[in-house]
Design a binder for these strands. Structure first.
Lengths: 141, 141
DNA sequence: GTGGTTGCAAAGGTTTTGCATGTGC
DNA sequence: GCACATGCAAAACCTTTGCAACCAC
């Protein structure tokens, strides 16, 4: 959590609580979920603070906004340099994925299509090892 | 546009107009932009119809929702089997990318991490060939 | 002490929904 | 003709903003 200090931001109890909540779940979390979670210890925290704090975390490179299907933004804690993920659609656990997979792709795209890649989204959705083992087949809807 | 019929959906003038508008721009488009565009020919169309139609298009596999940063959904027309894109952050043009790049990645992830990939997002943001040529460097903010 | 941060509440904007009417098949 | 699609408007929703009080540094 010392990463927060390194980000050159003020270390308030709220921010700590939010960062901690996000880091601890190991899953993607919406603002509402973080709000519910953090409110157990900070009953007077406001939703706006969550929004402002996660924005700050994203800018500091400590979190990432997942543009996930369904119009609600979710956030995940992430170590610098790990901006791609495996996201379990069952338990919502998130695993990091390094840049190593994307870098060669970006390079070949630049070469073959003349496209100058700035950044890329690469996220895999599916079942994590545990969930895949639990149910061999995806659950029927 | 015959793809619409194939999707087993009713072919209404509104849907045709929306699909056409989306297909013709060759760019990502927000609902608001489609609304403005389609309204030139269908002044009485409602925003709700746009939302319902793009949802239908997405379900039919003829469009894709881009979860782009900034909380507004944008949609792009896409041929079946081309669900990854190069998106120009300058002119907002969209180029298709086949599945060929992702398939091997998904396979290796399944093998190495025990993760059962269902689907993946892979979109590259940057400058298309034309925009990259126009301005060698990204514009200063 | 000071400037950034918080909490509250209200505003802003996007997306969804209900229902009567209209229409493709 | 019937089921589905549309238009309208209001509701629901997430997110942002303004501002006074507060607090980390």
């Amino acid at each position: 959590m010392a990463a927060l200090e390194r980000a050159g931001q003020r270390l308030t109890p709220q921010r700590l609580a939010i960062a901690e909540a996000l880091a601890r779940t190991g899953k993607e979390a919406t603002v509402q979920e973080l709000y519910d979670q953090v409110r157990r210890k900070h009953p007077y925290i406001g939703r706006a603070t969550i929004f402002r704090s996660v924005d700050m975390l994203v800018e500091a490179g400590l979190a990432q906004r997942l543009e996930r299907p369904g119009h609600v933004s979710a956030y995940i804690w992430c170590e610098p340099g790990h901006h791609h993920h495996l996201i379990c659609t069952s338990c919502r656990a998130v695993e990091d994925l390094g840049e190593t997979l994307v870098a060669p792709l970006a390079k070949s795209i630049a070469r073959e299509r003349g496209f100058r890649v700035d950044h890329a989204t690469l996220d895999f959705y599916g079942l994590c090892r545990a969930c895949a083992a639990k149910r061999g087949k995806p659950a029927a809807s």
